[in-house]
Design a protein around this nucleic acid. Structure first.
Lengths: 248, 248
DNA sequence: GGATTTGGGTACGATTCCGTACAGAAGGGT
DNA sequence: ACCCTTCTGTACGGAATCGTACCCAAATCC
C-alpha cells in the first residue's frame, strides 16, 4: 500500500453521486492513495490538511473512555467522507483510524472548501450523507443496547463488507471486540456461531462472507435499515437538498 | 399548559446565542407555547410547519424497533432545535415527542429558512449544535454499551434537568425504562440506589434532584463530557463557524 | 367513597456477557 | 528449523440484567 498518489477514477459513492456537470471540476484536485490498517486519518487537536473519501478502505471513528477502553462510535466508507468539518471551521472531536486497509480519495481542505462553494451538488451530498450518518449512529445506540452480540456482529461484518466493496477483508477478533465494545472471547463465540451456521469463514485475522443471505438472517434489522438510508442519502435526499440550495 | 402563544423573551440557548445585532430580526416570527408530555412534535412522513426551540420543555427523539420496542436515540432541550432539517428539504426520519412538559419557542418553517439565509449567526449555530448532537449521540453508543445502568440513569437525570432548567420534573420509572432501553424493574432498582445515596427523591411520576454533586459522582463521565460539548457548541464553535460563513 | 387505573417494590430462575486464565495453532523473523 | 509473537478456542465463577409475575399504595374517575 505504498504506491504513490494516483488520479481519481471513481469508487467513492459520494463523489460519484455529484451531478455529472459538476463532478469533473470537483474531482480535479482529488488524489488516490493507499491506507494501511491502523493509520490515523484525523484526531482532535491536530491540524489536518485533507478531507478523505474512502474507496475500498474503511475508517472507524473511535473514542477512548477515561478508563482507557477504546470503542467504535462510527464507520466511514465509500458512502461518505471524513474530515469535512475541518473545512467549515468546526473542531475535530474524534479520532478516526483506518479499520480495513484499502484506497482512499482525498482532497486538500482548501480545495474542498472551494468545491463546496462552487458545487451545489457536493454541498447537498455532504449534508445528506451527514444526516444519514446521524440516523445510523442513533440506530447504533439502540442496537448496542438491546440486540444480541451475534446479531450485532453479523450487522457489523455486512456493513463493513459493503464499505470495503469486497466479501473478504483483514480483521481479528480482537479488533472486532473493540469495535463492538465486548470481550475478545465473546466475539470468538459469536464468530464461531456464525461460522457454524455457514455464514462466514475466518482464519488468523481474515474474514470472508460465504453466504450473505444467512448472515443477514442472523443480523438484526439494523443492517438493512442502515443500508437503505445510506442509499437514499446518495440518491433522493441529495436531489431534495439540491433543490433547496439552488433556490437560495 | 393551554395558554395561547406568547412572545419570545429568551430561554432557548441557541436563539440567545445569536449575535445581538441579528437576534431581534431572527426572533421576530418566534412564538412561545406550552407542550404537554407525550405530544408529538415531528414524525416521519408527516408535513410539519414549525421548527422548534425548547425553552424548558424537553423533547426525545425515539425509534421503534420491528418487535415494537421503543427506545430513545436523542434528547433536544434548550441547547438546540428540532425540525431544522425540514427547512433544508431533508426528510424527517425520527419521531420526536415531548418528554418533559414545558414551554417551547417555535418558528414557521419558511420563516426559519429565511432567517438562516439572513443570519450568519443562526446558520452557524444550527451547524454547531448539530455537530454537538452528533458527538453526544456517538457517546451514547459507547455509554449504553459499557456503562452500568445506575451510571446511565444518573447521567440521564442530570442532562434532562439541565435541559428542563429545573431540578424537579415529571417522570415515571416506566418512561425512563424506555429511554434507557431496559426493564422498568431495573430502573426502579437503580433509582432506589440513587435515592439511598441521597442523590434524588421521587414519588409517583415525579423526580427531584436533591444533591447534584452526589448524582454526578454516581453518573458516568458522559454527563460532564456532553455538558461541556454543548456549552462549547454554543460558544466558541459558533464563533469559528461564523468566521467561515462571513468569509464566504 | 368505592372502583379502577397508575406507579412503584420485590422476587426468582434464566440468560447474556464479564474477567481472567490457559493452551494450542498458525505465521513471521532470524 | 526454531523461537516468538499473534490469533483463536475454551473454561469457570460471577455480575448485570432479563422476563415475568404478584402485591401494595396512591391517584383518579364516576
Amino acid at each position: 500500500m505504498k504506491a504513490g498518489p494516483m488520479a481519481y477514477e471513481g469508487g467513492n459513492r459520494l463523489l460519484d453521486a455529484i451531478p455529472s456537470d459538476e463532478r469533473a471540476e470537483v474531482v480535479r484536485p482529488v488524489e488516490v492513495v493507499g491506507l494501511d490498517s491502523g493509520t490515523v486519518t484525523h484526531a482532535p487537536d491536530v491540524a489536518y490538511d485533507w478531507v478523505v473519501f474512502p474507496i475500498d478502505a474503511v475508517l472507524s471513528v473511535v473514542t477512548t473512555l477515561s478508563d482507557g477502553e477504546t470503542a467504535e462510535v462510527g464507520t466511514v466508507g465509500n458512502e461518505g467522507a471524513s474530515g469535512a468539518e475541518i473545512a467549515f471551521g468546526a473542531p475535530v472531536l474524534r479520532k478516526t483510524i483506518c479499520q480495513v486497509e484499502g484506497r482512499i480519495a482525498r482532497m486538500p481542505t482548501l480545495a474542498f472548501l472551494d468545491a463546496v462553494d462552487r458545487s451545489a451538488g457536493l454541498d447537498a451530498l455532504i449534508r445528506s450523507t451527514e444526516k444519514a450518518r446521524m440516523f445510523f449512529v442513533e440506530q447504533m445506540i439502540v442496537c448496542n443496547t438491546v440486540h444480541k452480540l451475534e446479531q450485532r456482529c453479523a450487522r457489523w461484518l455486512l456493513l463493513v463488507a459493503d464499505r470495503a466493496a469486497r466479501e473478504e477483508y483483514r480483521l481479528t477478533h480482537d479488533f472486532l471486540s473493540i469495535m463492538l465494545g465486548v470481550r475478545r472471547a465473546t466475539v470468538s463465540e459469536a464468530a464461531k456461531s456464525l461460522h457454524d451456521a455457514g455464514a462466514i469463514e475466518y482464519a488468523r485475522g481474515r474474514v470472508r462472507i460465504l453466504d450473505r443471505a444467512i448472515l443477514e438472517s442472523q443480523s438484526c434489522e439494523c443492517y438493512k435499515l442502515a443500508a437503505r438510508v445510506f442509499d437514499a442519502a446518495l440518491d433522493t435526499w441529495g436531489v431534495a437538498l439540491l433543490g433547496r440550495k439552488r433556490r437560495a
